[in-house]
Amino acid sequence: MKLSVNPVLEKEAKIKMRSWRAPALLSVYLLFLSGLVILYFVSRNLDGYYSNFDPRTALNIYTMLSFFQLGLLIFIIPGLTSAAISGERERQTLDLLLCTRLSSWSVVIGKLTASLSHVMLLIAASIPVFSIVFLYGGISPLDVISVFLFQIVTAFLVGSIGIFFSSLFKRTAVATIVTYTVLLMLVVGTIAGYVFYAVTRHRLLGWYPSFWESLSILSVNPFIGLGALLEKQTGHFGFVSEMLRRHSTNVPHYIEDLPWMINIGFNIVLSVVLLLLSAWLIKPGRR
């Protein structure tokens, strides 16, 4: 068996790397990440806090960078994917693509892997910024790799959402807006909805949601998942476990791992479903 690259992936990579957008995105991306680190040090100096070797510095920067990188990726990926299919349709190249021997599934996967490769490029470029934390110790390269892997899984879901709406809607503008709306619901909506639900329930019934209820609502949020992973790695900042424990008794002790594991499982299952639906939507001769 000869290993062959998905032709759509190859074409996308070629086109992407030739356009001015790829280097521009990369520069702005790194500017944001390193800017954050610089801001952190500046603000500490302004506080008059001089300690060149505080192990907490590393943990703070690491946590901050990880969250910030996740946020940036969630913000960037719809721009890389929500034109994936609708863009080909608007450009009038989709029919040409679907007439070839490529299956609609290969087209969808080619588009997704192209944007995920782009994401991985951004993540790889962030390694020098992340390596600052190694100067201080306390965080191992393996920890950083786990965070990167977690972020790639999140990117997988965000990319699949973008591709799904790009297949569903004829116009890229509509696909982009709907994708961002859904992501906002995933990131802000789950937490706001949870708080609203918990408060209302407490007022009406006198008790808060159970641990399992809280866990299943909150764990779909990528930031909660990442938070849980970081808490386990750093042993600090217990906000995720606290939020889950706060109003529940009988909390099992393996709780730290649950939110990120559930999040990863949720992301993968939903992504696969969305990708299958996308392939079905663009299948030629469906109508």
Partner: peptide, 30 residues
């Protein structure tokens, strides 16, 4: 897909792709 070659009434091309790369892409896709 094997037997029919199709040229639509309206069609587009990709930016940033050279003629032989364009052809190579459709070869690969087939």
């Amino acid at each position: 897909r094997e037997k029919v070659g199709y040229m639509p009434d309206f069609f587009g091309v990709y930016d940033n792709l050279k003629v032989d790369e364009y052809m190579d892409f459709y070869c690969a896709a087939n």
